[in-house]
Every structure is written in C-alpha cells, then in structure tokens.
Design a protein around this nucleic acid. Structure first.
Lengths: 252, 252
DNA sequence: CGTCCCCTTGATTAATCTCAATTAGTGTGG
DNA sequence: CCACACTAATTGAGATTAATCAAGGGGACG
C-alpha cells in the first residue's frame, strides 16, 4: 500500500501568504473552520454548505487518496494529519509537489482536465472531507462568498507554487521550508516554535529539490549555528530572525 | 531604479505580427477565442461577456502592466505579444515566474491577497484586454460556464507551475521549455516547428533556474546533436521525438 | 534481541555556476 | 553610411555547490 517510489522534489508554498479574513464559524461536520471557509459565511449559509461536505474514514500512512488518471469528481479538505502530493515522471522519478496540512485543499490541479494529474498519499493517519466538485460549483452560483472563496483558494495555491519556484540555495530553501511550516502551524493554533515533521527527510529533500543527505547536513548546520534544534521528527526554531535571514526573504 | 537593471536586456527583436487565429466564437473586442473563453458560450452570452472586456493600448518592450504591491482590481488576458511575470527577493535577485502568450491570463496570483504579488512586463510590443475582477465574479454568478471556465484557468496555472517545479537537469528543462512553447504556439495556430523567442537568454535561464551561459551551451549542444536549429531568436525544432526523450517526459 | 529502515556523516565526483574574454548584433550620431 | 558604444550571446577555464557513493549509527517494531 505504501508505494515505494523515488523522491526528488518540491512545491507547496515555501512561503505562506498572509491569511485571509477568516470565519469564526466552523463546519461541524468535519471541523473545517476559519482556515478554509469564507469569512463572510453566516450560520444559515454554513448550514447549506455543510450539506455538501462529506466525512470520510481516516487513511493510514501511505494510503492514497487519489492517483494520477483517476476520474476527478471531488476536491478534498484535509481534516487532520498531513498529505503529500506528488507526480512520477517517465523515468520513474518522483517529484513531491506539496505537503498539505489541516484546512488545506487537495485536488485543485485536477479541475482543469477533469482527471487527477497528481497523486495524494497520507503521511501518518490522516483524514479528509470530501466535497463533490459539481456541488461546489453549483452552490457557488448561489453563494457569492463561496465562489470568491474558491477563487481565492486557487489563487493562493498559485502564489505558493510561485514562491517555491525560486532558485535558492539549499540553506535558503530549508530555512524557508521550516518557516513556512511554522507559520502554517501557528495559523492552526499550534506552536510555531516547535513542531513535528510529518514527512520523512527524503520527502523534504525531494520537495526542496535536494538530496536527503543534503537535508541532513543543512539541518545539522542550522543546529550547530543555534538556529534550530532537531531530534528526529521534532523541530524547534530557536532563532527565527536568523532563519528569516537565512531564508533570504523579507519577513515571515 | 530596480527597473533599469531588471530590464536592461529587453529585445524587441523579431516577432510575429499577425494575430492569433482563434476560435469559432471570438470576442470581437479583443480577439479572445477558445483559448480563453468558455467553449460552451453562445452568442448572447458572448455579447454579455464582451461588455466586461476592455481593450487597452499596446505596451512597449519593458513596460510594466503591474507591479508587486499594486492594488489588484483587474485580471488581464494577453491579446498579442508576450509578457513575463517575475518577483524580486529581499536580496534583489529576480525570479521569472512565467512567460505568457496570447490568450493566457495575467494577475491570477493577486486574487488571494487582493494585491499584486508579482510584476508583469511586456516582451516586445504587446497588448492585453483588461477584465475588472469584480465584474468577472459578478458575471460568473449568472453564467455557470464562465465560473467553470475561471476555475479551470486557475487550475491550469496550478498544473503548469507544478510541472515547472520538477527537479530536472539543464537539458531536460530546456527541452521541456522548447516543447512547451511549441505546443502553445501550435494551439494558437502558429507553427510548432519554428518560432521566435520573445524573451532573452537570461530570461529563459532565470525561468529555468539556470545561468545564461548554461542556456547557451545547452542550445548549442542540442543544435550539434541535430535536435534543433537556433539563430538568435529563431528556433527550429528538427527532431521532436528526440527532444521529448531529452525532456524526460512521456509526451508532448 | 535482532532486523530493518531511516537518518547521519564522510569522501569523492559531477553538474552547473562564476569569472573572463570574445564575438556579434543594435543603435547612435556625426 | 560608417565609426563608436553598448548590450546580448557565446565560449572557455576554473571554482563551487550539491549529488553521489560509501559506511556507520539508532530507533522502531516484531
């Protein structure tokens, strides 16, 4: 079940944009909350929206949510855990496109062709909500807030991918990656100073277009310099300012 | 100030003057055709749609359509010519995000934050149609085809960026780039075997995360191997199959 | 308690970048 | 129309980053 394929890659936002105005209400059915619901949605609207949200049973580590060439009919919102999306090229090389935390959407790249063009697999036990795409578009016709929200979510993914496209050094990419995770955890109410990496070193490496050995070395270097502390999956950010500088970006 | 150094190398050069021959139904106002209009749009709908499309005067080489931090109110559809989008990081390094041909949209990454997060500049004399974003969303409420079309366009950009994310060799990226251009020219009714590069070597290099010298060398290598013929801006693809193999992708 | 896989660390190699120099267009002004 | 200046593109040589190759550690789990 756990596919064994090669890794080499990168994607999903090395950098997270500022969060949208958020909803105070949450979808009771799946816990979708301020991160992925329109800010302007009121209770009746939420009720309507909930009708198209379907809970699914949790997936285990390595289970696939969808694969390339699968028919596209649903988009997914991560409810808990973490997913990675990836593609495999003609030579069999894997490329990780992104890591997706709770509240983030999966399958947006399938809208264009109506077929999945990437694979999604759970990193550890994880769960999603399923939203039938037809229903989303239909409901969007009646709810301008939802339509706008969808546009914004798609746009955000474009921004994130653009940010990840940059040609930076191994240190810069690693620093940016850690800061991106930090900011996303923070937005979810978790600590932005200390968190667990759901993904393996080789997944990180692949995502960042590095070798796994390089990821190890960079992390070791950062630790030696006092920027972070790493112990297996657990990461603590000790000097965020220095990390920002290392990332070569203005602010985080 | 940034401007001058960024755009020191624009060359107008040789570019195809004729307009892209597009769809059966075309927006009379700006020539938008099937490349950027919903296929299912009928004449009355087209008429309505045309109301929100606004022609603008052509831009000259190096002129900016928008810049980072500009207010976002419009999206743009390239009518003729070519644009490049790019960002500049804290260290002043430029990163080209994409090249945009006739029929392709610009500014989609600005929807999320309501502010432009990239810069767009004309490569040679080029023109766009302006679509006020408010009007697009409003009209999308009444026209499901338009809404779906917008979703698809955003999704396509996500797919494109994902494809560009892969960690490939210089040869692979260059080959893929040429094939991508070829297929886009073909979709516009131009030759897919022979075309002019609107962008400089350094823009290509930057986009592909390579040094300009590397781009030169790879092109020279391809030419020596008989895959292509290059003369300044003019490129001829002599052996597409071999190029596909060089790109490491299944098909183009 | 032993195996397996993931991760780390070291040594070497290779791809690509950087630096440098040359050629070739492009445009300007006399 | 030509000389000059400037920029783009190419080519060569050496430097450098990160990959690859190789060898151990260290948990996790049965």
């Amino acid at each position: 079940m756990v596919d064994q394929q090669l890794h080499k890659g990168k994607t999903d936002g090395l950098r997270s944009p500022r969060l949208a105005p958020v909803s105070q209400v949450a979808c009771t059915k799946c816990g979708l909350g301020k991160l992925c619901l329109p800010a302007t949605m009121d209770s009746p609207q939420l009720k309507t929206f909930e009708k198209i949200v379907h809970k699914t049973r949790p997936l285990q580590n390595g289970d696939h949510l969808f694969r390339v060439a699968d028919d596209f009919s649903d988009i997914y919102a991560v409810r808990s855990g973490c997913f990675k999306t990836y593609v495999v090229d003609a030579a069999g090389r894997e490329q990780v496109l992104g890591f997706h935390l709770a509240g983030e959407l999966l399958g947006l790249d399938a809208i264009y062709q109506g077929v999945h063009v990437s694979n999604a697999t759970a990193l550890g036990t994880s769960s999603v909500c399923k939203l039938q795409y037809d229903e989303v578009t239909t409901l969007s016709q009646q709810m301008p807030e939802l339509q706008n929200h969808m546009f914004r979510l798609l746009s955000r993914r474009i921004s994130d991918l653009s940010a990840a496209a940059a040609d930076h050094s191994a240190d810069e990419r690693m620093a940016a990656f850690l800061l991106s995770l930090a900011s996303r955890f923070k937005a979810r109410g978790y600590s932005s100073k200390e968190f667990n990496l759901a993904m393996s070193r080789s997944d990180i490496a692949n995502y960042l277009r590095l070798a796994t050995e390089t990821v190890s070395r960079v992390l070791a270097r950062f630790q030696k310099k006092g920027l972070i502390k790493v112990d297996r999956k657990l990461v603590q950010l000790l000097d965020k300012d220095a990390l920002c500088k290392a990332a070569g970006t203005a602010t985080w």
